[in-house]
């Protein structure tokens, strides 16, 4: 029950979807469509996994007044407030993200700046990392560095002002060598994904059951 049933479910859905790809007409096509819609529905629920442990952990911290409980309280307050304004938006405007919904206020003035700034921090880290790590230690690293510099200079007006070489070289790098490598890597990855999918369907790969 605990292992066999899931393996059978995976095998059946997997093989069926490969089959219905080649035989898209009735009844395969209709059944495939139904499975796809179900998949979309179930996929939504996976987003809820983790929310419970988040709430539990921080609620415990607040209840026991542990160190940093104030931050946990802020976290929970943010969560509850967002849910409340979301529901208000749904009831009042038909959707939480109607342009006048209070949910959009929270979105625009908290989620957007928080997410964007967190990510902007990376600018500093990547700059300092590149300063430290990307030194022309050997010919391979030099190649990487030269390529990066040419590409950057080729894409900003200053580069073209220095020499017409940069935009031309930039284009060539993007269209020929870098494209070739990206394609090689991606073909390898795609074939890897295919073999992994086969292993999953056939029940050889079972790590998702843990």
């Amino acid at each position: 029950m605990k292992r066999t049933v899931p393996l059978i479910i995976t095998f059946l859905t997997g093989t069926f979807l490969v089959m219905s790809f080649f035989v898209p007409h009735a009844p395969f096509g209709e059944l495939e469509q139904r499975l796809l819609v179900w998949y979309a529905i179930v996929a939504g629920f996976t987003m809820l996994l983790g929310v419970d442990s988040l709430i539990r952990a921080h609620a415990r911290k607040v209840a026991r007044v542990r160190e940093g409980w104030g931050f946990s309280l802020a976290l929970l307050a943010g969560l509850v407030a967002t849910v409340i304004v979301g529901v208000i938006g749904r009831v009042q405007f038909g959707s939480p993200f109607h342009i006048q919904s209070p949910f959009m206020f929270i979105y625009t003035y908290t989620i957007v700046p928080l997410q964007a700034t967190m990510f902007a921090l990376l600018a500093f880290f990547i700059a300092s990392a590149s300063y430290r790590a990307f030194r022309a230690r050997n010919w391979v690293a030099t190649l990487l560095l030269v390529s990066a510099v040419i590409v950057m200079l080729g894409r900003i007006p200053i580069g073209a002002a220095i020499s017409q070489f940069f935009p031309v070289a930039q284009e060539w790098i993007m269209d020929v060598p870098q494209l070739a490598a990206k394609r090689g890597i991606q073909i390898g990855a795609a074939l890897g994904a295919v073999s992994m999918s086969l292993r999953i369907i056939l029940g050889i790969e079972r790590s998702y059951l843990s």
Binding site: L36, V37, Y39, A40, V42, A43, G44, M47
Partner: peptide, 26 residues
Amino acid sequence: RPGYIAVMIAMGREIEDIFRTDYQGT
């Protein structure tokens, strides 16, 4: 809608199966 792979393929057959309504429920 969650599950983008399924959404993309199902839309090739019938968009209404996935998006019965717009974001506001129309």
